[in-house]
Design a protein around this nucleic acid. Structure first.
Lengths: 219, 219
DNA sequence: ATAATTATGTACCAGACAGTTAAATCTTGA
DNA sequence: TCAAGATTTAACTGTCTGGTACATAATTAT
């Protein structure tokens, strides 16, 4: 090693958090794009401002990195969702707003949707039951439960559907809209996924949920 | 092909069709389980009654094999769906029956669902617009269109939702039920995916679609 | 029969890829 | 200032994996 070599090296500031955040951001894109098996550590490293060594330094191995990516994605998305304020609206209005918000939010977070799809392929093996995740998930159901409770009290929403079941329905419709647009579009045409089709689906989904939840129970 | 040929063929020790079918069956399981990148050609070969050499002999390479698996899966599933007979039922009854059939069918074909998920991760790049696939897809919409037409004539189903939009909704609810059970179950508990929960979801989905389609248009 | 064609099995390879080594450079704190 | 620890780089390793070369058997055509 010569003197020349040493001076060629640029000087740097230590910034562990930024390095880790950078790795996580790049890895998120890469895993969302190619899946766990399809993603390449070399490719992630190349697109990072740091080196492959540092990925292993901070994240141990590929699977751990993937796990951290997944956890991080869930945290960010659930936080955003929890920020929605619904208490001031009437139960039906709050429900419609929640559905439309969920629709828009899923559309705007394809990366997250893809990570969830990928994790389902892996049978949710890597999805930790972390304290934080469990908490934000519970609060998602909770805010729906509040709408349901208020609706039941007023008689404006049917009471025989649990908040969990309602959440499941909303998720299904909004998730599928993003997750399956490629095969659905190729099989049945792209209309539904162009701007006007999406507008219509958004309304149809909200109407479907609202019509169902404001109907009287049949039994 | 002569009589002689046929009898000879029946007694052949070599059996290309069976070999190909065997490869395709094993590959279907393997790709559905691990995805395109995650599946291992050596593993597929090992579980086959033949050798790796034969996979490449008949299917050229991994991607082509995957494509054939996908095409095959679509063909089989769509054929089954098309066998459903609905003309004798009233439009609402036919619709309910179709929804429940779709729900059951998706539940019983997790391998297919997983292949579709995987293909969506690949942005439907490998999904051919083959003559046959296009035809059975069109006929799926067609049978719904017939229900819708009859319902409109009788006034028993609303007319402002297209068969395509209706199909989209039914697909979304039934597909998500299988595709996302792992992450949903881990996040919100397994109740909905146990026997009684599934029974309830099945009814809820059908009720949701029926309630929506028998409601009068709001505008 | 026998050449031509189709089908099959064995052994192997070249490149890819996750993960590592070792040393150098930088920061921090006493 | 300087030792100790943190951070970074480049080259390396061993294994995995998609794909193939070569040999051979089964079947058909002449």
């Amino acid at each position: 090693m010569t003197q020349q070599d040493k001076t060629n090296r640029a000087s740097w500031k230590q910034n562990p958090e930024a390095v880790q955040a950078n790795i996580l951001a790049v890895a998120t894109e890469e895993f969302a794009e190619h899946g766990l098996a399809g993603a390449r550590m070399d490719e992630i490293a190349a697109r990072t401002r740091t080196s492959k060594r540092m990925i292993y330094y901070y994240f141990t191995d590929k699977e751990t990195l993937y796990q951290r990516v997944l956890e991080n994605a869930y945290r960010k998305v659930r936080m955003e969702e929890a920020a929605l304020e619904l208490a001031s609206l009437s139960p039906p209005d709050a429900l419609r707003r929640l559905v439309e918000f969920t629709f828009d939010h899923h559309c705007a977070n394809e990366v997250f949707i893809r990570l969830v799809m990928i994790e389902n392929i892996h049978k949710a093996k890597h999805l930790s039951g972390s304290e934080l995740i469990a908490h934000v998930n519970a609060s998602a159901i909770d805010s729906l439960a509040q709408i349901c409770d208020r609706g039941r009290a007023k008689g404006s929403l049917r009471a025989d559907i649990s908040p969990l079941e309602l959440h499941w329905q909303i998720s299904a419709l909004c998730f599928f809209n993003v997750s399956n647009r490629f095969t659905f579009g190729k099989n049945f045409g792209p209309e539904l996924f162009e701007a006007s089709g999406q507008q219509r689906l958004r309304t149809i989904i909200a109407d479907t949920i609202l019509t169902f939840m404001t109907a009287t129970a049949t039994d």
